[in-house]
């Protein structure tokens, strides 16, 4: 927990703090968080697949559980779920681990002391949960944006995608095109800002609680934050899935169109409700 001379007791920087610089490139503590999350995930993956039995052991099935759970959800979203299931699983697992890293003891409290130009002494945490950095959440949102545009173009063709943006009666295009463009772009912002806001707020809340009542009380909020971290990961992944699912389903002629659309819209209200 950072201390500030004469300032408030609680300080969580809104931006990821730079640990060191190599030339023009600055390395932040959220990058450390992202790398740590990646390493943890790869270790878990290695453990699961190391000797994978058809009838898994207890730890193996516990680690497989989130993958199975998400696969089950994604498989219900569209008949072409195999094309994007890896992406959704990746979003979910990466965000989940990145969120939960903020709950580990030492994260946010172990750091290097930094003295700025004004002489203020501040502690910069070594690790910051990656999802408490807008770079991370925006990066993931950009990936998902690119993917659902890509899937939309792949399913309906470039012309079909543009036609879809222009709206149904063509004479309404001048009105509908900007609205649809804004709607598409707003997904980018909503995805990234929702995740960032939740995790960052969680970090601030935890820091506040630890500062106010260092014993027992933070444990409750740690539990809550664990839940929120899970929910936010789920929300991000499910929204990305829904966007891709609708991009595939819309104007996709054929018998499975209705089924695809139905599934996609089945999931979206739940996802939106969870998001709010």
């Amino acid at each position: 927990m950072p201390e500030e001379e004469g300032g408030s007791l609680i300080h969580v920087a809104i931006e990821a703090e730079t640990l060191f610089k190599i030339g023009p490139l600055s390395f932040t503590n959220s990058m450390v968080g992202a790398l740590l999350a990646s390493v943890l995930l790869l270790l878990a993956a290695w453990y699961i697949t190391r000797r994978s039995a058809l009838v898994p052991g207890r730890l193996q099935s516990a680690l497989e559980l989130p993958v199975e759970l998400m696969t089950g959800i994604v498989a219900g979203s569209s008949s072409r779920w195999r094309g994007y299931v890896a992406l959704i699983l990746g979003f979910f697992l990466m965000i989940l681990v990145a969120n939960w890293i903020g709950l580990l003891p030492g994260v946010g409290t172990i750091g290097i002391t930094h003295v700025d130009e004004a002489g203020h002494e501040a502690m910069i945490p070594l690790v910051r949960p990656a999802s408490a950095d807008l770079n991370f959440t925006l990066g993931l949102a950009i990936v998902s944006f690119v993917m659902f545009v890509y899937w939309g173009i792949k399913a309906n063709g470039a012309g079909g995608y543009v036609k879809e943006l222009m709206g149904e009666p063509l004479y309404m295009a001048p009105l509908m095109l900007p609205i649809n463009l804004i709607s598409e772009l707003s997904r980018l912002i909503s995805l990234s800002m929702r995740l960032f806001g939740n995790v960052f707020a969680g970090e601030v809340l935890l820091a506040t609680m630890i500062a106010l009542a260092p014993i027992l009380v933070p444990a409750v909020f740690l539990g809550l934050e664990a839940l929120f971290g899970f929910v936010q990961a789920l929300v991000f992944a499910l929204l990305a899935m829904t966007y891709i699912g609708t991009a595939i389903a819309e104007h996709h002629a054929g018998g499975d169109h209705a089924a695809d659309n139905g599934h996609a819209t089945d999931h979206s209200p739940a996802a939106e409700a969870a998001a709010s």
Binding site: M31, L42, I48, T49, V85, A86, D133, N135, G139, I142
Partner: peptide, 25 residues
Amino acid sequence: WKLAFQVINFLILLYLLNRFLFKPV
């Protein structure tokens, strides 16, 4: 730079996870 770092980190992770976790599972 930071954005690119996160995106590339995620894409590499996604590739590895897909290859070593998702596909086998």
